[in-house]
Design a protein around this nucleic acid. Sequence first.
DNA 1: CTGTATCCTTAGGGATACTG
DNA 2: CAGTATCCCTAAGGATACAG
Lengths: 137, 137
Amino acid sequence: MKEKKSIYRTDCPVSTALDIYGDKWSLLIIRDMIFKGKNTYGDFLDSKENIATNILADRLALLEREGIISRAKHPDSKAKILYQLTDKGIDLIPVLIEIITWGEKYYDVHMPFKKLDKKLEKDKEGVIKKLYKRLRK
Amino acid sequence: MKEKKSIYRTDCPVSTALDIYGDKWSLLIIRDMIFKGKNTYGDFLDSKENIATNILADRLALLEREGIISRAKHPDSKAKILYQLTDKGIDLIPVLIEIITWGEKYYDVHMPFKKLDKKLEKDKEGVIKKLYKRLRK
DNA sequence: CTGTATCCTTAGGGATACTG
DNA sequence: CAGTATCCCTAAGGATACAG
């Protein structure tokens, strides 16, 4: 596997964050983990956006290297790997929530669960707290 | 100039948002407009990250096409152009704030104004409101 | 099932020169 | 000053095949 230099452009929090997940795929993996409970390679491959296997492998490695996700053996099978959000990854919930809020305000788009859309409008803080609770267990 | 197809991958708000600003530069321009009051081509070129002229021109066009920024004549000079955030662009404030919050929590990074960093810790909502107020004028 | 590896094409982007 | 244009290289990414 190629080595990434992991050098950030500047000491700005925005540019540093973008150096890590400023691309078209990383946050989709995080989205699937947070909102759809996905946690295996096959799960991620199965998304509507059709991520390529090489890109998926690359991003999983990158996210693990940055401490955003962890890998562990899956209880179901020896070959299977279980990907889980670390606390650092869980802390991306508010970022995702704000991106969703913006997207839903300006485009005809929706999260797969209508309940979530409505709850978000009414009680964003409540949604965030619930997600934290579910993922921290 | 090349035509961008502007077709979004899916109807997911996250993937749609990433189709627009899921790259290493777009949000840096927005950052500079929100937090540093930048609004001319030369201002943007002047950032620490050293964006290339062709990339800057491309992103300004993209952001304008998406209705996130607007262009107008600059009062100072006929040649100069004034870029300003639209309401849609201003609504990216919460996204940036959450990205900054996450970045500052996990990396040794800082926004150029220390006051902002401290205020963010104590009163995130207040900071957001102030920024909205300043930019909506 | 979880990846790697490979091939190939396109997009991103740095450097620089140039124009209205 | 605000871009365009060009050159050229690298990174991103799609498709497919293959391996443990």
